[in-house]
Design a protein around this nucleic acid. Structure first.
Lengths: 324, 324
DNA sequence: CTGTTAGCGCATTCAA
DNA sequence: TTGAATGCGCTAACAG
């Protein structure tokens, strides 16, 4: 019995001939190791929990792919849970994941509250944040500099000479996307001495339809913006179509820049200029970092800020890529 | 100890006062049940395995959302695995999932081979197929009638009066999408007495870029098609843009119809006419069916064919919805 | 209604 | 290099 355990787990202390015989017998009997029993005995389940806002968003789907690929590479499985960004659901899911004895947890894109911190620190399971961060406590994360990126995106419109730049934002209560990207927009305007006007700001829910609708409102007003920064690509695509529906040409009359660089960005005409966020990499790097924690590998940097890139295509007029 | 187990599992055979005391103590101690131990003892893990081609495809992401929602509703967790439609990877994943003692398995959108059948029947874990089927063995599935739907989509173009109808297909070796949708296209043409020409057929990989490229080739040829049926929306969107890039107006000069009705269909101009596939429902119904198997509930129908719907928007000229 | 007992299928000592 | 014994934390009879 112990010997079988040894060969199944690749323990070298088995005579080659014995190993061969065991393997043969395993094959013949169709023996399948019970990972649950193994998990109970070894206290390792080789599965990690992933709490993600909504897998049906292109952004998170791509991130999840990065996570799963790396997990698979290190022989982990992932238990995937949609949180819809609801705190109570998040908490309940994390609890359930801990009960299932996951070896690690990836928490994506939600706000980290005291309740999160309490449940996280009540366990010795490593937790890595992805596409979010905890600015109060020191917890490992992988993300990008949202404020700076939003600032640069807005900067593109400014350098094109626009004086009236609108914002298609997300809820300011969203500390992960909505607020920082709003902040970047605001800072860019203020630093350039351009007017920052509430009336050129509309909040959406990150979906195409909300972008379409909000952009229409913006563009229909007197003295409306001549350029729009949307905090994600879906809304930006909506803005392009809103402009077109109103008979305005993009980018000749209206410039639009988005954020994320989801596939949709190259599936609209004109091609959408945007901030290319390394979605897959955020997931992959976060998962890799988590494996280091789970296997007690040395960790040089547990708070990684990935690079983004301005991807200027045809919905803006500026050419080339500015340094940043 | 047994009493604690009873209150944790909601067993009614506990005196209310005792229950209260146990609950109180649990809270005070911060006791967290170990689901792995429970799984070993009870032989139920309340987790199901999901093998899916690629979660970063909008189609499967939406399906996965349906699965997870219903799983969550019935207090199951899902272990999500991307197979990339590779048989060996699928097999290996299924094996790993069985080792982890999943209570059930959802197998999505891959071809079911003899090797699949062997591994499936070598276990008593219930398996439900979603967005695919096994036409050789009698296994539960949830899907739509691909051939008929493709036939109707093609029929829309035929009724518009087109004589030269092109196909943007998938690999004919793909028995789930590529082949049946090709078949529907072919049957529709033949039944209408229209020419079925190889030269009007291009195979893509379901991605936007391949649709764009293939459609360009098709539309640039002499005597090219005046209408295109793409077997999925991404390629259809590519076709719309290919036409536009060539200076042809959609739908005035070229009609395009897609398949799936992913969000992209309403995020291009003109809005894409397509076959609305109930992606979320396929996932949800499949998961619900699986819960019935896992809980030994009576099952009236274990091979469900869901309804699709023609969603005629602006990339075709036909109005309204034909009966089917 | 509650406590006692015996596994669940493994990994992990410890001896041999 | 191998086998025997122990226990991981729980559920499921069973007895009381």
């Amino acid at each position: 019995m112990a010997t079988v355990s040894r060969v199944v787990n690749g323990n070298p202390n088995v005579k080659p001939l014995t190993r061969k015989k065991v393997l043969e017998t395993i094959r013949r009997m169709g023996y399948r190791p019970n990972a649950v029993a193994r998990g109970l005995a070894s206290k390792r389940t080789t599965t990690v929990g992933v709490v993600i806002p909504d897998i049906s968003y292109a952004f998170f789907a791509e991130l999840a792919r990065g996570i799963e690929d790396i997990a698979n590479m290190y022989h982990y499985n992932i238990i995937l849970c949609n949180s819809d960004l609801k705190k109570d659901k998040e908490l309940q899911l994390i609890e359930a994941l801990f009960e299932k004895q996951v070896d690690g947890l990836l928490f994506l894109g939600g706000k980290v509250t005291d309740e999160h911190r309490e449940i996280f620190s009540g366990s010795d399971v490593p937790v890595v944040l992805a596409a979010t961060r905890d600015d109060k406590e020191n917890r490992p994360y992988v993300t990008i500099d949202q404020v700076q990126a939003a600032k640069e995106a807005t900067g593109v419109l400014i350098r094109e000479g626009h004086q009236r730049i609108g914002l298609l934002g997300g809820p300011l209560t969203d500390p992960i996307i909505g607020y920082p990207r709003y902040l970047g927009y605001k800072e860019a305007l203020l630093e350039s001495g351009l007017p920052f006007e509430e009336k050129w700001i509309r909040m959406g829910n990150y979906r195409y339809d909300s972008g379409l609708k909000a952009a229409k409102e913006l563009l229909e007003t007197e003295e409306g913006p001549t350029a729009i920064f949307a905090v994600n690509d879906e809304m930006a695509a909506g803005a392009i179509h809103a402009a077109q529906d109103l008979g305005k040409r993009v980018p000749e009359e209206i410039s639009v820049i988005g954020f994320d660089n989801i596939p949709l960005a190259t599936q609209v005409r004109p091609l959408l200029s945007t901030v290319a966020v390394p979605m897959y990499d955020i997931g992959a790097v976060a998962m890799r970092l988590l494996t280091k924690y789970m296997n007690d590998e040395p960790i040089e940097n547990n708070q990684v800020v990935l690079e983004y890139r301005l991807e200027l295509r045809d919905s803006t007029r500026l050419q080339g890529e500015p340094a940043h």
